[in-house]
């Protein structure tokens, strides 16, 4: 992947996430930050996709985004979902759902099953990623954020 490719990927993941923020009616003051989260999740995903495969890449990208949205929801004083949902959008298995439906109607059942299971695997990767990070209690995260805030002062 060349430099222009990476830059274009960054730009478009930002634009796509920001577009979703508008669809979810997220206030303007959060949009740029959500776009940044979208860039991060997409970057983690495409960088890990070739070495570890798309399912694990989705898992690690999810873990990154849930962690970041939990930390920054405390910093920015907003609900976790406002940051988490847009940040997760680039990881949605839209193409896997499409290919499942496509091979299903074109009667290529082997490929349909393959993509169907891929959809399930991707969904499970997201589920596990969210559950692992949500299980961390809020107190240590809050303490960490407050400590950093004090240091800055």
């Amino acid at each position: 992947m060349g430099l222009t490719d990476i830059l274009l990927n960054l730009l478009f993941s930002f634009v796509a996430t920001a577009g979703f923020c508008i669809l979810f009616n997220i206030p303007k003051r959060h949009i740029a930050f959500c776009g940044l989260l979208g860039i991060i999740s997409w970057l983690v995903y495409i960088l890990l996709r070739s070495p570890v495969g798309e399912v694990l890449a989705t898992f690690f990208a999810t873990v990154t985004i849930v962690l970041l949205s939990r930390v920054f929801s405390i910093v920015r004083k907003c609900p976790v979902n406002v940051l988490l949902v847009p940040g997760m959008i680039p990881l949605a298995p839209g193409s896997a759902i499409y290919y499942t439906a496509y091979y299903f109607v074109t009667n290529d059942m082997t490929s349909a099953a393959e993509y169907g299971f891929l959809t399930l695997k991707l969904a499970f990767a997201i589920v596990l990623g969210i559950i692992v990070v949500i299980a961390v209690p809020t107190k240590p995260i809050k303490k960490l954020v407050e400590k950093n805030a004090e240091k800055k002062k």
Binding site: A16, L23, F24, V85, I89, G94, I97, A123, V127
Partner: peptide, 21 residues
């Protein structure tokens, strides 16, 4: 694939997982 993305049930899915968690 690009055009179906705005229909993806992102909020429902994330909330489902968070509720189960």
């Amino acid at each position: 694939i690009g055009a179906i993305m705005p229909l993806i049930p992102g909020v429902s899915f994330v909330n489902a997982v968070r509720d189960i968690a």
